Amino acid sequence: MNEAQAQEIVRAVGLTKRFGETVALDDVSFVVEGPGLCAVLGPNGAGKTTLLDILEGLAEPTRGAYRLFGKEPRPYPRKRVGVVMQKEAQIERVTAREYAELFSSIYGVRGGPERILSRARLEHRAATAVTRLSGGEAARLFIATAVVHDPTLVFLDEPTAHLDPENKRIVGEMLRELAEERTLLMTTHDLREADALADRLLFLVGGRVRASGTKDELVRAVPEAERRGLGVEDAFFHFCAIEIREGQAIGREEAT
């Protein structure tokens, strides 16, 4: 990412979300600049999906606020935002081309179906039902569909969670290409994937931000004694107060 051209894309200030007595997000504040790919890292139950739901305009925070492109999102800037949810709708018997046609018409994009199928590398699978695509093919289709209208910001909720290593690599190449011209905010619990793809990092554990910044900044901040040469993984364990003992990840308070 060219730092001289970086612009503020997302700003969260004190975001808190409660579900009854459960606190899913606790005073979450951060800034994401773009273009580039920001990985939101945390274990299952960290609050990653809840955070995206709020930033996508699908849920209201209990407290706090956020800004997109320097403004309050009222009305929500749908034309500038793309979304890939953790579980995308897969309508029975709808082909890849029909799926592409549907979302192209929703966004009003001429030539959209061809653009989607080409970007997803699925021209040869256009007549195949979406439910019969492989995991990697479906992931590429959903991502290509989410950017058919050329959004400035794209939210992706664990887009490679169930893919094998080769398909993760292919989708990763697609994401890096997209991140050259827009901002991607992607949740994941795969530390090594984040190391390979991300420009910026946000560590979210137990609904709280443990650290945020550029990947290089956070990796350099790890004390020499804690480094194992694993980059983002080292940074995550350091900032989230986690250590490795006998091959197991444990909280530092448990290690004393």
Score class of each variant (00 low, 15 high):
Leu25Arg: 04
Gly36Asn: 05
Pro43Ile: 12
Gly47Glu: 05
Glu33Phe: 08
Ala39Ile: 03
Phe19His: 11
Glu21Ala: 13
Leu37His: 03
Val31His: 04
Thr49Ile: 13
Pro43Phe: 11
Cys38Trp: 07
Asn44Phe: 14
Val28Asn: 00
Ser29Ile: 06
Val31Ile: 14
Ser29Ala: 08
Gly42Lys: 07
Val31Trp: 03
Asp26Thr: 08
Leu25Phe: 08
Phe30Ala: 01
Val40Tyr: 02
Asp26Pro: 05
Thr50Val: 15
Glu33Gln: 13
Leu25Gly: 03
Gly36Asp: 06
Leu41Cys: 03
Glu33Cys: 10
Gly47Lys: 04
Asn44Arg: 08
Leu41Arg: 00
Gly47Ala: 08
Val31Asp: 02
Gly42Arg: 04
Ala24Ser: 14
Asp27Ser: 08
Val23His: 08
Asp26Glu: 12
Ala39Thr: 01
Gly42Pro: 04
Thr22Phe: 14
Phe30Val: 08
Val28Glu: 00
Val32Gln: 03
Leu25Tyr: 04
Val32Ala: 08
Gly34Arg: 02
Asn44Ser: 15
Ala24Asn: 09
Asp26Arg: 12
Phe19Ser: 10
Cys38Arg: 01
Pro43Ser: 15
Phe19Arg: 09
Pro35Lys: 08
Cys38Pro: 02
Thr22Tyr: 13
Gly45Asp: 14
Asp27Pro: 00
Ala46Phe: 00
Gly45Arg: 13
Phe19Gln: 10
Thr49Leu: 14
Gly47His: 05
Val28Ala: 01
Glu21Thr: 13
Gly20Ser: 11
Leu37Pro: 00
Ala24Arg: 05
Thr49Val: 13
Val23Ala: 11
Ala46Gly: 15
Val23Gln: 13
Gly20Ala: 11
Leu37Gln: 02
Gly36Lys: 02
Phe19Gly: 07
Glu21Ile: 07
Gly36Ala: 11
Gly47Tyr: 04
Gly47Cys: 06
Thr22Ala: 13
Ala24Met: 13
Asp26Leu: 08
Val32Lys: 00
Leu37Thr: 00
Ala46Pro: 03
Thr50Arg: 06
Thr49Met: 11
Val40Ile: 14
Ser29Tyr: 05
Ala24Gln: 11
Pro43Tyr: 11
Gly20Tyr: 10
Ala39Arg: 00
Cys38Ala: 15
Leu41His: 00
Gly47Val: 03
Gly20Val: 10
Gly45Ser: 14
Leu25Asn: 03
Glu21Met: 09
